[in-house]
Amino acid sequence: MTAPLLDITGLKVHLHVGERIVRAVDGVDLQVAHGTCVGVVGESGSGKSTLARAAARLLPNLPATISGTAQFEGRDLLGMNERALRGLRRRHGFSMIFQDPLGYLNPTQRIGAQIGEALSDEDGAKTPRIAALLDEVGLAGARDIVRRYPHELSGGMRQRVMIAIALASAPKLLFADEPTTALDVTVQLQVLQALYRLHRERQMAIVIITHDLAVVAEICDACHVMQSGRVVESGPTASLFANPQHPYTARLLELSRRRAGVRP
């Protein structure tokens, strides 16, 4: 048996807010094997985003105590220096996409430049590679998109651009933090399908952070349910959905079914 791609054990992120300590993540274990798709589900404030940010080393510069371990291909992520971290982010490591693509794209830079700077220089001319990435995320029709600014695109297009940026480093692992939450319902499904296609075609592992169990049901192999900084239940998606053990999971499922019922 090979080591998992991402191996998190006993991860704690305690934020210092004034005199108080907020236990955003409080002892989480999470394994992601090569080429699999794992969902982390929970309501807002359950610590799922903080977990992903901590693992991707993208937490904002706040006073916090982080303990436990997180390894990527056997290498210690939490203690890794910035230089090694950059190496992983630039090529064949991991990347991340976010809930609000408008805020996460630079408003004063053209799309082409923002994708281009994520490409490493060693792999040849950038222009054709940018075009190839745009093709891959389903923006082939919009040729002039490289010359546009983020505010000139629709929400779905922006999220596709974000995905293109994330793919630029040919990552083995993609953290997707609420990738569809800010989008229209119809667009949500398209973006999700694009993610799933990329997951299959590229053999890329994905960690999807979401409050929406429907998203997990759609594409995830395994699922972890988080509440107040802890994983309360985890297992293969199918069995977890069929037979939830924890009442919190059952409640989330119930909520999700009800929402699905009223969907157009």
């Binding site: 990347s95 805020g103 408003p107 994520a118």
Partner: peptide, 14 residues
């Protein structure tokens, strides 16, 4: 620094 695109820039490995 608090804007999302700075996080994206860090995630790009710049």
């Amino acid at each position: 620094l608090g804007q999302g695109y700075i996080v994206t820039a860090r995630a790009k490995g710049l």
